[in-house]
C-alpha cells in the first residue's frame, strides 16, 4: 500500500470496518429494513369490504357452469397467462431467483463460518454443486443483461439503474467465485470486494427495487387483483 495514500485515507481502518462491524450492521439494517418496509406497505392497504355473497339460488344454473367447464376455463387461463406467453423467461427467472437464494445459504464456506461464530450451521452443497449453481446465477444474469440490450420492448424501459441493480445482484457471486478460484492471485482483494458487495446488497434490499423479494408475495398473495394468487383479502389504500 502506498504510504502517502494510507496516510490520507485510513485504508486499514476502512478494511477492518468492512470485515467487522459493517457485516453486522448490514445484517441488522437488512432485517430491520425488511420488517419496517413490510409494515409500511401493509399500512397502505386495508381489508377489502367485499359485497355480501349472492345466494346460490339467485344464480341460474346455466350461468355457473359444470366443474369440467370451470376446469377447462382455468386451463385456458393458464395457457394465456405469462407462463404461456413467455415460458422461457419465466423458467429462467424462477431458476435464477431460486439459485440466488439457495447458493449462498448452503455454501460450505459460509456454513463453516456460521459454525465458527454461532456453533450451528445449515447443510452444505458439495463444492461442485455450488460452483454449478453460481454458474447458473451468472448465466441467467447474463441472459437478463442481453435481453435488456437486444429486445426492443425491454430496451424501451431500461435505464442505467437497471444495469446497476443487476450488477449489484451478481457482484457477490462473481467475486466469490473468483476469490474461491484465487483468480489473478489477489484473493484478499476479491474477498474484500465479495464482502463489501454483499454488505451493499443487504443494505439496499429493503430500500430499492430489490424489495420485490418481499413485495412479490405482498402484491400477489395479499392484494385482490385479477392476477392475485390464493385468496387475498386486501386492497390498496394510499
Amino acid at each position: 500500500m502506498n504510504p502517502i495514500i494510507s496516510h490520507i485515507i485510513p485504508v486499514e481502518a476502512i478494511v477492518d470496518f468492512i470485515y467487522g462491524p459493517l457485516i453486522w450492521l448490514s445484517f441488522v439494517i437488512f432485517a430491520a429494513g425488511l420488517i419496517v418496509q413490510t409494515w409500511r406497505y401493509k399500512m397502505m392497504t386495508k381489508i377489502n369490504d367485499n359485497p355480501p355473497l349472492i345466494p346460490k339460488k339467485e344464480i341460474p344454473k346455466s350461468e355457473t357452469g359444470s366443474r369440467w367447464e370451470r376446469f377447462f376455463y382455468k386451463l385456458a387461463f393458464f395457457r394465456l397467462s405469462v407462463m404461456g406467453f413467455n415460458p422461457l423467461l419465466v423458467t429462467i427467472s424462477l431458476v435464477f431467483h431460486l439459485c440466488l437464494l439457495i447458493t449462498p445459504l448452503f455454501l460450505l464456506a459460509h456454513n463453516i463460518m456460521l459454525e465458527n461464530v454461532f456453533g450451528f450451521s445449515l447443510p452444505s452443497f458439495l463444492p461442485g454443486t455450488s460452483h454449478l449453481l453460481t454458474g447458473i446465477v451468472l448465466a441467467c444474469g447474463f441472459f437478463f443483461m442481453l435481453r435488456r440490450i437486444i429486445i426492443r420492448r425491454v430496451r424501451a424501459i431500461t435505464t442505467f439503474y437497471d444495469y446497476l441493480i443487476l450488477g449489484l445482484a451478481l457482484a457477490p457471486f462473481l467475486t466469490g467465485f473468483l476469490a474461491h478460484q484465487n483468480a489473478f492471485d489477489c484473493y484478499d482483494t476479491l474477498i474484500l470486494l465479495h464482502i463489501l458487495s454483499c454488505e451493499i446488497l443487504l443494505i439496499m434490499i429493503p430500500f430499492s427495487k430489490f424489495f420485490h423479494m418481499i413485495f412479490f408475495f405482498f402484491g400477489r398473495f395479499l392484494i385482490i387483483n385479477e392476477y392475485s394468487l390464493g385468496a387475498p383479502k386486501r386492497s390498496w389504500q394510499f
Binding site: N50, L53, I54, K56, I59, G65, Y73, K74
Partner: peptide
C-alpha cells in the same frame, strides 16, 4: 341484473 364473471363464482356466490 347482477353479473358474476366466470372464475369469480367462489368470491361472490354463496356456497
Amino acid at each position: 341484473r347482477t353479473i358474476v364473471q366466470k372464475g369469480y363464482e367462489n368470491r361472490y356466490i354463496e356456497k
